Amino acid sequence: MSVLSGKDLSVTVRDRQLVEGIDFELRAGELTGIVGANGAGKSTLLKALAGLLPCSGRIVLDGQPLHDHSPNERARRLAYLAQGHSAHWPLPVREVVALGRLPHGRGNSPEDTAIVNRALRATDSLALAERNVLTLSGGERARVMLARALAVAPQVLLADEPLAALDPAHQISIMQLLAAEAAAGLAVGIVLHDLTLAARFCSRLVLLHQGRVLAAGAPHEVLDDALLAEAFGIRALRFEHDGLRLPIPWLLTAEAGRTAGGAPVAGGNATA
């Protein structure tokens, strides 16, 4: 069931069109990955879907136009995790995560405390609970900010590069967590760059290229050779495990793998 959808979405900033004519939907029970090269429009699309960026087109949340929901109701239904995971106040981690409960009331009931603790445990942040958030590493702060978004207990989670700054173990654990949250009924949309993890954990991918949707569907359909070459200028090695065919970005294509002077980059004409 579609929980959040956008129809014919376009965003123009300072006379430059960043995304154009995009149709998009997030379904309950699915982890949808948004992939594409730098500048393809991924973060712009996510901000527009969250109602944080003016756009043309139509956005529907839980059957109603997004802006028909009051700000507080929208904050209860939709959690947005921005890129960069910045924190501006010297608060203890527990209090930062508890901010996710504010749309539901004061945020200090036994139920709120239980939800905050669950979010801290799920993101491997419980040991950081009493730390000043400004003293954390980038990866630790990324996990705390995801915990804050999960503490909202929303219907929809939009996360812009939640794996940025995370070590490999935490990248895997966060993708496992997001996949589990989706399997439990949450509609999850994330921007990510790791195509192997996207193919492994996402139930559906949307590939953006130059502000438009180039492809959408199952990971093995979206990450095929022709689309990877067009969107990223790369070729991939592939391996099979547990019934999945997973890509590993390996070479630049002949077009992308040339220097400004026209000489091929070493290995640019190899076969993957």
Rank of each mutant, 00 (worst) to 15 (best):
A147D: 07
S173I: 12
D225T: 06
L214E: 11
R141C: 12
R14G: 09
T113P: 01
L207F: 01
R200F: 02
L146T: 02
A199I: 05
D224N: 13
D194I: 03
L166S: 06
L52F: 10
V116R: 00
R121D: 14
I34W: 00
A114G: 08
R94A: 13
V191N: 09
A151P: 07
N38H: 14
A180M: 08
P219L: 04
E95T: 10
R76C: 06
M145C: 12
I190P: 02
L177R: 06
V152P: 07
C55V: 12
L4P: 01
G57T: 11
E240D: 15
R148A: 04
N72W: 07
A153F: 01
Q210P: 08
R235F: 00
E161W: 03
A79T: 10
I59C: 10
Q155N: 11
K47M: 11
L178R: 01
T271I: 14
V265M: 14
R212M: 10
L157N: 05
G211L: 15
L251W: 02
A98M: 09
P219M: 06
S125L: 03
N72H: 11
S137A: 10
A180C: 08
A256V: 11
L31H: 01
T135P: 06
D15S: 15
L52R: 14
S137M: 08
D224M: 00
V11Q: 07
L205N: 01
V222C: 03
T44Y: 11
A122G: 07
L223I: 05
A82R: 09
A254S: 13
D23E: 12
S2I: 11
N132G: 07
D15C: 10
L45Q: 09
V3Q: 04
V265S: 01
M1N: 12
L91T: 08
L205P: 00
A149H: 06
E111Q: 15
L146F: 09
V19K: 05
E95N: 13
G185S: 10
G63F: 09
V3I: 15
H170Y: 15
A82Q: 12
S125E: 06
D112W: 07
E111H: 12
A263M: 08
R148S: 05
G21E: 10
I172N: 07
E181C: 13
V213A: 00
N72M: 13
D160C: 05
A127R: 12
P247F: 02
R94S: 08
G105Q: 13
L186Y: 04
R131E: 03
Q64I: 12
A50N: 04
L186D: 03
L208N: 06
P54H: 10
A98H: 04
P92S: 06
A198L: 11
L26C: 10
E240L: 08
N108F: 15
P168W: 10
E111S: 14
A169Q: 15
